[in-house]
Design a protein around this nucleic acid. Structure first.
Lengths: 203, 203
DNA sequence: AGTAATCTTGAATGTGCGTTCAAGATTACA
DNA sequence: TGTAATCTTGAACGCACATTCAAGATTACT
């Protein structure tokens, strides 16, 4: 039936670099949105020919789902490393929010979140994609909750607003921050908002 | 050149009900997004034939812009009435947030904001639409700022975080609330989040 | 009622899309 | 090297879309 596709240059029988291909694809999806990212754009971005994409990912939706999976993997690794390199919750989340707010004020493709952008686009049109995206977003909220719980046990924050409540508010704030940024990037306001958000979450 | 179109039943030379048509169109745009709302869907939703739409609004984008204008008009009127029927800022914003959060947990088309949904979709693709949407969103933020300023003068809230800062945080929170709701509608969490948001804005 | 001007209608048009698949290229192995 | 199996390639397909426009319907006015 379906087998793995190969790269353009078929001198070696090695498969194409799947991670690289998926990162190129996710960038295209973030830049133009799912439906406006044509297969033509995807073949240019990935360097794969239509046939190879269909061979490896079934169809455009399959490539999206694989890209989302890679995106989640990358974001999780990034967050884990960020947590490891900070010894207290405040500086960790500060760095985290800076990493989010900084690209927001730019015009890079990374200023949007692949998960929320795609969710907003396909909401009510594709239940499978919606489920995958929701699950990934929930999983990340749980990661934040874990980090907050550890900080509680270390006595860095009080236990009164629970880690779950704090995580929910933080996630809501991040969603809002990104949308706010897309309405016209006032860097100063964005920085102030993320500061206030952090203060409130760690209150 | 181009003139006004008429209704299906042309017994009378009266123009079609523009407001009604635009409200039907905006509902369709909110439900399916701009690009996935085909002209066929729009003809069904509005009851107008393609020729009439092109006669009255030039093209699909023109119908979108007219719908956005109507949306803003309706939202402004709604907000003004809401403010008039509450004598203090807290109950006014409470009602305002409830009006936002309640449909979010449902599956109505009104659970999304036409402005932010369309902005996220066309961002980086159409500068004119982007500008119009950003301007409308900024204008609404200024309405909130005005209301907060009036509350300050009445002594209901302190002047320390300025009305502008409060309005910005509130707007960010609303954006976040809606996105958060779209990830899986936990009504209870949504209510708690909007309560916390209000408390913080009126701190 | 007759006529010119205007409006309505929806089939036709061209374009761009996701997807397929047969032909050609490459490999693995004898 | 010869041959079968597998992989690569991109032109071609059908479809859905936004848009147009000529033909028909209605109006306004004499």
């Amino acid at each position: 039936m379906r087998t793995q596709a190969r790269l353009h240059a078929p001198m070696r029988s090695a498969e194409f670099d799947k991670e690289h291909v998926l990162r190129q694809a996710m960038t295209a999806f973030m830049q133009h949105g799912y439906s406006k990212t044509s297969m033509q754009k995807l073949t240019q971005a990935t360097g794969l020919h239509p046939g190879s994409i269909y061979c490896a990912f079934n169809n455009k939706k399959g490539l999206l789902l694989a890209s989302v999976e890679q995106y989640q993997k990358d974001k999780n690794a990034q967050f884990a490393q960020l947590c490891a390199s900070h010894d207290n919750i405040k500086s960790a989340l500060q760095a985290f929010l800076t990493d989010i707010a900084h690209p927001c004020a730019s015009n890079e493709a990374t200023k949007v979140c692949l998960l929320t952008r795609t969710l907003s686009e396909v909401d009510g049109q594709d239940d499978e994609v919606t489920q995958v995206l929701s699950n990934n977003l929930s999983a990340f909220e749980r990661s934040l909750e874990d980090v907050l719980n550890k900080a509680m046990k270390k006595g860095e924050i009080s236990s009164k607003p629970s880690a779950k409540e704090r995580a929910q508010f933080l996630v809501m704030g991040i969603y809002g921050l990104r949308t706010y940024a897309s309405t016209g990037n006032d860097t100063q306001a964005l920085n102030r908002l993320s500061e206030q958000l952090l203060e409130y979450v760690l209150r």
